[in-house]
């Protein structure tokens, strides 16, 4: 058994499922939104006159949170694969894993924000702080909304039967989740790694992160 959710069961003028078309249109608009935030951050790179900039990043910590988010994407696609094969139990298991990994990622981000503020970097410190907290803050908000959406799907699924309509519900939240993941792939690569490459303190995180 395999549920194909690309083509709508009801005839549409496009021949495509309208809900799926809508989520892709939304993701297209969100590309512009995050693209603007990332471009603004890059534009002001190296123009902060006071305070910390990329030297404050801890790449080992951010690499761990990136790994968690990538694994959550894998769990998400395994949840979709489960329901597309008519297995609700498998879908619930992987949806829960995805939501837990998403929560861990948000926890990492809160920890990072807290440490940055302790080190003296806030949104009002300099251009770097303003653009960094706005960009990663909006991304964190997207992840948090995704976690709530995933749990709502998890609990709603106890009233479901395996079918095309419910498979589409999981596919739509999955598309949103993978999008949040690829936005982070770009932020981690372009902002963290490329941004911090060349910073003098890049080998180890600040000592204060470990209570020193």
């Amino acid at each position: 058994m395999y549920f194909d959710t690309t083509v709508d069961a009801h005839r549409t003028s496009t021949g495509l499922n309208n809900r799926k078309l809508l989520i892709w249109a939304f993701l297209g608009s969100d590309v512009l939104f995050f693209g603007t935030l990332i471009a603004t951050h890059l534009l002001y790179r190296g123009r902060s006159l006071v305070g910390h900039t990329e030297d404050i990043f801890s790449i080992p910590v951010t690499s761990a949170s990136t790994f968690i988010l990538l694994m959550s994407s894998l769990a998400m696609v395994l949840a979709l694969s489960g329901i597309q094969r008519g297995n609700l139990q498998t879908m619930r298991f992987w949806i829960a894993i995805t939501a837990i990994f998403g929560s861990i990622f948000v926890g990492f981000q809160m920890f990072e924000f807290h440490e940055f503020v302790q080190e003296g970097l806030t949104p009002r410190t300099n251009l770097f702080g303003s653009t960094f907290f706005t960009m990663t803050g909006f991304h964190g908000a997207h992840v948090a909304i995704g976690v709530l959406w995933l749990w709502s799907i998890f609990f709603a699924s106890f009233r479901w039967s395996a079918g095309e309509r419910n498979s589409l519900n999981v596919e739509i939240v999955g598309l949103y989740w993978h999008f949040v993941d690829i936005v982070w792939v770009v932020i981690f690569g372009v902002v963290y790694l490329v941004g911090a490459y060349g910073a003098e303190d890049r080998i180890l995180p600040p000592v204060s992160w470990f209570g020193g």
Binding site: L32, L70, L74, H178, I182
Partner: peptide, 28 residues
């Protein structure tokens, strides 16, 4: 490479209707 792998395989852009890919990649 990571972006394309996630979009192509996890978001199924390699397998679904091409118009979904257009909706995503044109704004990009």
């Amino acid at each position: 490479a990571k972006f394309l792998l996630v979009a192509g395989f996890f978001m199924h852009l390699r397998f679904d209707d091409r118009r979904f890919a257009i909706l995503f990649f044109v704004p990009l």
